[in-house]
Design a protein around this nucleic acid. Structure first.
Lengths: 199, 199
DNA sequence: CCCTCGGGTTAACGACCGCTAACCTCCGCT
DNA sequence: AGCGGAGGTTAGCGGTCGTTAACCCGAGGG
């Protein structure tokens, strides 16, 4: 787990601030001058690091989708011969970590997808689809009674539940990160269980 | 239940198309000319009906919040002496109806709030808060073990779950509206039950 | 028959925004 | 010492967008 200790590069600073601003006011609602100001340089200086405003959004969205997918794949690979319930728990945990630690990205993730160039949008959608299908397989192992379309709907809905973190008040007003993570986890499991019960 | 049979007024046409376009491409991503074209008039003709683009968004968002709140209040008033579980079911049902029938509005509801004038935004937030608090009360009657902050988090998360309808594929690819509504309902109850179980 | 007025039209203005051009400065290398 | 490139700067262009101005037209009432 290569935890970074070195200072963030300028590119990373820009991406982080851009993500925050895009999440706050929307892609079209933020000017390049604002993004520049947020990292202490001004406007066109950004073009030394990115081809354009679109490129920043693209890199953010591809990064998010890729990170989620590779994280999930890793968790799946590590859990070999483990009970499906435990694998599902691991997926949930990973998604919650992401949703709690990178709220702006979670917000962007399903909000600004249509602002991308065709090729980038296709790539992001493909990564997202793989991520979903991976969940669907695990969910159906745990709840074999679930038909595939139903399982897919259930997965999307649980994503909606987990991605509600931006609405839960600023970090600090909450009962604490751990408690929130635990609550979300229990609710996600409860939702899946209820989905798999009848059907 | 005064079901409308008369033709929609021009204002209503405009609002409906504006909602769809805003949901698809974001408030700043849609031009007034496009909105006009969607109802067969062009650009500045809209100003005979609305003070400006902002006014359309404001009317939409205030309308959504108000409609959700008054619907919930009505359901609560009708259910007098009924078991709290049934009241919660009624709230869930109302929210699902809205989320399934007015997907563009659901999308706008938590996406474009910051684009409003201060006064409008405050109004919308107040309506939303009332709606949430109403749910929190009912949830805590059903699950008395839940502390208030936890219950509020749980309610927000279930909203995230129910509001996932725009991600569930276009209406038609689904197992049918009824089945989807039922699935979402079961999952919401399951999520609340899991939240109220431990704590 | 005219007058009003609701509901359109097109032209145009002013602001803003993404991006490029041209230039400048400093650091690391030979 | 000299120089090249990385990473800034400001000025400005071109296009888009929200909004206003000025004009038009058809229907209903006195």
């Amino acid at each position: 787990m290569a935890t970074r200790t070195d200072a963030p590069t300028r590119r990373e600073q820009i991406l982080k601030e851009a993500a925050r601003l895009f999440a706050e006011r929307g892609f079209h609602g933020v000017g390049v001058d604002e993004i520049g100001a947020a990292v202490g340089i001004s406007g066109p200086g950004l073009y030394r690091h990115f081809a354009g405003k679109d490129a920043m959004l693209a890199e953010l969205l591809v990064g998010i989708s890729g990170q989620l997918l590779t994280g999930a794949k890793r968790r799946l690979a590590e859990a070999d011969g483990v009970a499906p319930e435990a694998v599902l728990d691991s997926l949930i945990e990973g998604h919650i970590d992401f949703a709690l630690d990178d709220r702006p990205l979670i917000t962007l993730h399903d909000r600004e997808l249509d602002r991308l160039r065709d090729s980038d949008r296709k790539l992001v959608r493909q990564l997202q689809r793989q991520y979903v299908e991976l969940w669907v397989e695990v969910v159906r192992e745990v709840y074999p009674a679930l038909a595939e379309p139903t399982a897919r709907s259930a997965v999307h809905s649980v994503f909606g539940l987990l991605n509600s973190t931006p609405h839960l008040g600023r970090p600090g007003s909450l009962p604490g990160r751990g408690a929130t993570a635990e609550l979300l986890h229990r609710m996600a499991r409860g939702a899946f269980a209820a989905a798999g019960a009848a059907e």
